[in-house]
């Protein structure tokens, strides 16, 4: 399941460095093309980003000062993290049962559920977001169904709210939660649940005491994936969210394409990146405090 972690775990380095199989030189030369690509396609732009945010054209911290002094921007930043957190939580709550069921199913049923999880992943985010507009708009499917059945007399305001953004984003990001969870749950030996039953635990206790703690690596991977993807989400919040629920990606987009304030956009991006990295580090620390997972898988 480590493939879902962002940082390379120490273990992988230790076993990957088996010089008997691959000489150091050979290993380095295999890594070079990707390293080169990363350098020019990722690291260089990132450095440029930092540079633009700091030099305009002379060194100045104006952009950061503006960001810090204007409550509106901090509010957008805060809202972004809040929405991302809600999306993550919703994905976890909705995705865990699905991943759990998937890990227990066999053959045809497993393939069917896997297809249901994966096919949306291959559909454009744009299409999926528009689908939510169809569902949520004033005279959309949900409102008309509720009106027809007499539950409400006035259409509800569903679209262009933060709630709509959270639900739509959770839908889009759900596979990124389900897949790592599934891979972890599947790797937990079935014997362990049997052993827990045998030793006197009912299904619920066995789940809480054994399966759930053992699936923490998958929960971590899924949460980090969905949270980080949610922070940088652009299309869905723009389409489904209203002006009152602006998220940081939309703000950065506005700054670069409409207001052409690249320096400020770069400052926003840098702050976002730093906070995200800090959160990942904290998250990982918290998880690794919980001992014993080294032994799993």
């Amino acid at each position: 399941m480590e493939q879902f972690s962002l940082a390379i775990p120490d273990k992988a380095i230790a076993s990957g460095g088996s010089a008997k199989f691959l000489s150091r030189g050979a290993a380095v030369s295999l890594l070079l093309p990707l390293a080169f690509l990363l350098a020019i396609g990722f690291i260089y732009p990132l450095l440029q980003l930092a540079k633009i945010s700091l030099f305009n054209p002379e060194f100045s911290l104006d952009s950061y000062r503006r960001l810090a002094s204007e409550p509106l921007y901090l509010l957008v930043l805060l809202r972004t993290f809040l929405v991302a957190f809600c999306v993550m939580a919703l994905c976890l709550l909705g995705g865990y049962p699905v991943a759990f069921a998937m890990s227990r199913l066999k053959g045809r049923y497993a393939a069917l559920v896997a297809a249901c999880v994966l096919i949306p992943l291959w559909t454009s985010v744009l299409i999926r977001s528009y689908a939510w507009i169809v569902l949520l708009q004033r005279n959309g499917i949900i409102n008309s169904a509720l009106l027809d059945s007499g539950f409400i007399s006035e259409p509800l305001k569903l679209i262009y709210t933060e709630g709509a953004v959270v639900v739509a984003m959770a839908h889009v990001l759900m596979p990124f939660m389900i897949l790592p969870l599934f891979s972890t749950l599947r790797s937990i030996p079935k014997d362990l649940a049997h052993a827990a039953f045998n030793l006197g635990a009912g299904p619920f206790v066995a789940f809480v005491r054994i399966t759930l703690p053992l699936s923490t690596p998958g929960i971590f991977a899924g949460c980090v994936m969905t949270f980080i993807l949610a922070i940088g989400f652009y299309i869905t919040p723009t389409l489904v969210g209203g002006p009152g629920s602006m998220m940081i990606a939309t703000l950065i987009g506005q700054q670069t394409t409409v207001l052409l304030d690249w320096s400020f956009a770069a400052a926003l991006s840098t702050v976002l990146l730093v906070i995200t990295l800090a959160l990942v580090v904290v998250f990982r620390k918290v998880i690794s405090l919980n001992k014993g997972f080294n032994g799993v898988n």
Partner: peptide, 20 residues
């Protein structure tokens, strides 16, 4: 149900809880 049988069992791969 298995959890009310009170029968001890040693599994083929021991099935020790790795996080405990």
């Amino acid at each position: 149900v298995p959890n009310k049988r009170g029968i001890g069992m040693v599994f083929q791969r021991y099935a020790l809880f790795p996080h405990l």
